[in-house]
Each structure stands twice: as structure tokens, then as C-alpha cells.
């Protein structure tokens, strides 16, 4: 087996990268959904009430439940579509990292307060 300059094996991968890319993008979308719902619940009294799935935990229960459902659903769909394919993993990664970075920022209260 030979390798390219960046240390990558030159043979085509035995497992297509679609499955891994799907997991990364879905996780980014799930995290971003959580951050958006957290901000929305904080800014809107109506959203706050809607997200109150379990009163003792308050709107956190709805925000996390919805985010997890969105994450799992999108992961399932992407896995189904990309499982046997090679996708542009660089772009997928960039999108996933952007969403994850935004999630980290948006959960930080001083940043969330800007919205």
C-alpha cells in the first residue's frame, strides 16, 4: 500500500465515509437545535411554556427532548442516504464544526442575551 504526501493511504477506503459524515453532521445539527431552543425558550414566554414538557425540570426538558429527537431523526435519515457513499467530508465537517461552535457560543448566557 502506498501513501500520498499527507499520509493518506492511496487505496480507496474499504468503508465509505458517508456513515461517519452523517454522524458528524447530525451531531452538529442536534447541538445547534438545542442552542436555538435554549435561546428561544429564554426570550419568548410562549416558547418557554411550549418547552415545559416536565414541570419540575421546566423548559430544559422540552429543549433537550426536541433537540435529541431532531438529532436522532436527522442522523437516521442521513445514515440511510449516505451509508454506502463517499461524500465531500471536508464540507460536511466544516458545517458540523460551524454548528457545534455556534452551539457552544449560543449556550453562553452573555452571547444568548444578544438575541
Amino acid at each position: 500500500m502506498t501513501t500520498r504526501g499527507d499520509g493518506e493511504p492511496s487505496e480507496s477506503p474499504a468503508i465509505p465515509n458517508g456513515s461517519g459524515a452523517a454522524a458528524a453532521l447530525a451531531a452538529g445539527i442536534g447541538a445547534f437545535t438545542l442552542a436555538v431552543l435554549a435561546v428561544a425558550g429564554d426570550k419568548s414566554a410562549w416558547m418557554n411554556r411550549c418547552l415545559n414538557f416536565y414541570s419540575p425540570t421546566g423548559p430544559l426538558s422540552g429543549a433537550t427532548t426536541i433537540a435529541i429527537l431532531v438529532w436522532i431523526l436527522i442522523w437516521g435519515v442521513l445514515e440511510w442516504r449516505w451509508r454506502g457513499r463517499n461524500v465531500a467530508a471536508g464540507y460536511v465537517n466544516a458545517t458540523a464544526f460551524l454548528l457545534l461552535g455556534l452551539s457552544l457560543l449560543m449556550t453562553f448566557p452573555p452571547v444568548a442575551d444578544l438575541f
Partner: peptide
Amino acid sequence: WLAPISITMVAFVFIRYGRDLSRHRQL
């Protein structure tokens, strides 16, 4: 909540690809 979401992704990709990860720089 970003911790379990992220580590679930990491575990899934590692379990799915294992040694094949050496062939996927982006992953």
C-alpha cells in the same frame, strides 16, 4: 448536553470504522 451528543458521535464513528479510520482523514 453537548458532551453526550458529541461523545456518542465519536463512539459511533470509532466503532463503525475502527482501523479503517486511518484511511479517512476528515473523519
